[in-house]
Design a protein around this nucleic acid. Structure first.
Lengths: 174, 174
DNA sequence: CCTTACATGTAACAAGTTACATGATTAG
DNA sequence: CTAATCATGTAACTTGTTACATGTAAGG
C-alpha cells in the first residue's frame, strides 16, 4: 500500500511518467522510497485501472510513447485517507544483527570487511546528506512549513546515520 | 534469503519446531527478525526439501505432532557461505517520510497523533531494551565475545531509538 | 565501439500477508 | 464462559526481485 501512496504523493505534486518517477526515486526521494522500474510500471497501470490515475499517452518521434499519469479525484481521496490513518508498525528485519547472533561462526575477517564496508557506505551517505542540505536547505527557518518538511526527514537521516557510525566504531574497537 | 539464514542460525544453536522459532522471534530475536507462523512453517518445509534441515516428527498425546527441525551439514555450509558474504544494501522504504513530503495535505491533528503515538511506542521500546540489558547483560565485559555480541545489537537498537526520540521532539516543537 | 539516456513492457519467481481451519488444555 | 497456549497447516493474495526483450540517439 505504501508504494501506492508514494506514487500518489509525487504525482499530486507533478504529473509524470513511470520513467520520471524512477528518476525521482533516484534523486529527491532517494532516502524516502526506492522501487524498480518494473514495480513502478506495474503499479501505475493497476492504479489507472482502479481509477486513481488518469493516463495521457504522448506520442514521440522515434521513441516509445510517453504515458503521462495524473492523479484523479478518487486518487486524491485515497491519498487523504492514507495520510489521515496512522501507519502500522514496521516489521523488524536486521540481517546484520542476525550475523551477530552467530558470532562464533562468523569469520573475523568477513566481520571486519563487512563493518568497514558499511562504515564507508554510511560516510558516503553523510556526505550526500550534507550536499543536499547545502543545496536545498541552507536556510531552513526561511522556508514555509511545507518546504521545510523534507528537511526534517533529512535531519532524521543524519541522526540515524550518525548513530550507526558511532556504533560501528564501538564494535570495531574490539 | 535472510529469513532462511536466520532460521539456520537459531536452529544451529538449538533444534526446535516452527512454533518454538515463532516464540524466539517474539522474545530473544524480537529486534532481529519477525515473521508470521505461516512464513516460518513454509520456509522450514522448503529447507527440509532442499536438504538443509532434518526433521524428526515427535508424536504427542492429544496434540498435533511436533516436527523438530535440526540443521544438516549442508545447512551448516549454506550458513557459513551466508556469513562470509557481505550483505547487500537494504532498500529504503520510509512511509513516514513520505507523509512529510505531503506536508500540506497531511492534517495537523493526524500528524500530531501519529508522532505522539510513535513517541510512546519508542519509549516503550527503550524500556524493553533496558529490561533486557539489566537481565542479560548487566556485566558485558565479563562475557565471552560470543555472549557479548547480542549485546552490541541491543546497543545499536538503543542508539537508533534515542535518535528517533530526539528527532520527534525536534519536530513536535513546531 | 561501447555505454548511457530515453521509455516501455512480459514472465517467472521469491518473499510476505491475510483469511480460514482444526482441536484439546489450561488459566482467569 | 472466554481467552490463551500448544501445534500445525491450506489457499489466495500482495509485494518485490530478476531475467529477458525492444529500439533510437547521443557522447566519449
Amino acid at each position: 500500500m505504501s508504494l501506492r501512496a508514494v506514487l500518489l504523493i509525487t504525482l499530486q505534486r507533478d504529473p509524470g511518467t513511470g520513467y520520471d518517477i524512477l528518476q525521482r526515486f533516484k534523486t529527491g526521494l532517494a532516502h524516502v522510497w526506492q522501487a524498480s522500474h518494473q514495480q513502478i510500471y506495474r503499479e501505475l497501470d493497476k492504479m489507472r485501472a482502479a481509477g486513481l490515475l488518469d493516463c495521457e499517452t504522448v506520442p514521440q518521434a522515434e521513441r516509445p510513447d510517453r504515458k503521462v499519469y495524473c492523479i484523479t479525484a478518487s486518487g486524491r481521496a485515497e491519498l487523504d485517507a492514507w495520510l489521515a490513518a496512522p501507519l502500522g508498525p514496521s516489521p523488524v528485519r536486521q540481517p546484520l544483527f542476525a550475523k551477530f547472533f552467530a558470532w562464533d561462526a562468523w569469520p573475523a575477517d568477513a566481520r571486519q570487511q563487512e563493518l568497514t564496508a558499511l562504515q564507508a557506505q554510511l560516510e558516503e551517505r553523510m556526505q550526500a546528506y550534507a550536499a543536499i542540505e547545502k543545496e536545498w536547505f541552507s536556510d531552513p527557518q526561511g522556508l514555509t512549513p511545507d518546504e521545510r518538511a523534507p528537511w526534517h526527514t533529512l535531519r532524521l537521516g543524519q541522526r540515524l546515520t550518525e548513530a550507526w557510525l558511532a556504533w560501528i566504531e564501538e564494535v570495531l574497537e574490539e
